[in-house]
């Protein structure tokens, strides 16, 4: 492990942006996780990748940064705890700016690779099927498919702002992808393993690794926004799910129910409108009206 950027910190030792570098020569791939301090499944996924790379012969150079927001990880906060700023809204950063702007600037400088991946967890309330999100077309699409994650979601590129890491990478001509899996605030070991295997398949596809350490995978979803059905609550209450992410459902399948917080009477049954794969599931059970409960994606036929 090498210590990259360092930032003097009140009351304690300096903050360090720790990097794991493998191989030598031009930087081919950069993998980043832990921009948000609560998204721990991605942190574990990168540590699993690091374990595999230690055992392998790496062609070219790969950098892994498993935890960017180390203080947020320690304190269980998504954003940088000192001033509650989101590092993923601070790009391209500023070497003379505030703490998050300096971290963002240093991170961008350390990750000028051919291909970059930013790994996130779902939100604190939603569990996500391991997935890679890419633009509708372009170089990233082929790279994303090489990962064989359970879901590939092609989305309009304008959803990514240049103040986010993936947007900043793309502004610099880097092939950049956004990988998501699990739920913030928890460690989902199975999803972390799935994400790690996908990243190792990508490294194999890029000829960084001669052999892929990962097992063959089942890709369940390869779709665009039109292929994803959003189910929202009509009323507030207590959400009781009946399915899990990755489940295959048929039209009319009961996805879950909203019940009264006190008394438990069912006030709304939520059913699948069409056949598909459950890709996102509300995990925190207290819901307000018009909040996301479930996303069902068209399956690969």
């Amino acid at each position: 492990m090498s210590e990259g950027f360092s930032l003097e910190t009140p009351f304690r030792d300096p903050f360090q942006l720790s990097e794991l570098r493998f191989g030598s020569g031009p930087l081919k791939v950069a993998l980043v996780a832990g921009l948000h301090g609560t998204e721990l499944t991605g942190v574990h996924a990168l540590n699993l990748v690091a374990g595999a790379l230690r055992m392998a012969r790496v062609q070219g150079q790969v950098v892994l940064i498993p935890i960017v927001n180390a203080h947020g990880v320690e304190q269980g906060t998504k954003r940088w705890p000192f001033d509650d700023r989101d590092i993923n809204r601070a790009f391209p950063g500023d070497p003379g700016g505030s703490a998050v702007e300096r971290i963002a600037f240093a991170l961008l400088a350390s990750t000028q690779a051919d291909v970059c991946v930013d790994v996130h967890g779902g939100s604190a309330a939603i569990r996500e099927l391991p997935q890679v999100r890419v633009p509708l077309s372009g170089a990233e699409l082929g790279l994303a498919r090489s990962m064989q994650l359970p879901m590939l979601w092609r989305r309009a590129g304008d959803r990514l702002e240049a103040t986010g890491l993936v947007g900043a990478w793309r502004e610099r001509g880097i092939s950049a992808m956004h990988v998501v899996g699990g739920r913030a605030g928890t460690l989902d070991v199975g999803h972390a393993r799935t994400l790690a295997h996908g990243l190792l398949r990508l490294l194999h596809h890029l000829k960084v690794l001669k052999h892929s350490a990962a097992d063959p995978a089942e890709v369940q979803v390869d779709t665009t926004r039109q292929g994803v059905r959003y189910h929202y609550s009509d009323v507030g209450g207590f959400w009781v799910p009946e399915v899990r992410v990755g489940d295959r459902v048929a039209p009319g399948h009961l996805l879950g129910a909203v019940t009264e917080v006190v008394g438990g009477q069912r006030v709304e049954a939520v059913r699948a409108e069409r056949a598909g794969i459950v890709m996102s599931m509300r995990a925190y059970p207290v819901v307000h009206a018009r909040e996301l409960l479930v996303r069902v994606a068209d399956p690969i036929s």
Partner: peptide, 8 residues
């Protein structure tokens, strides 16, 4: 009062 390097 608590500041990092670069805090305004």
């Amino acid at each position: 009062p608590v500041v990092f390097s670069g805090s305004m």
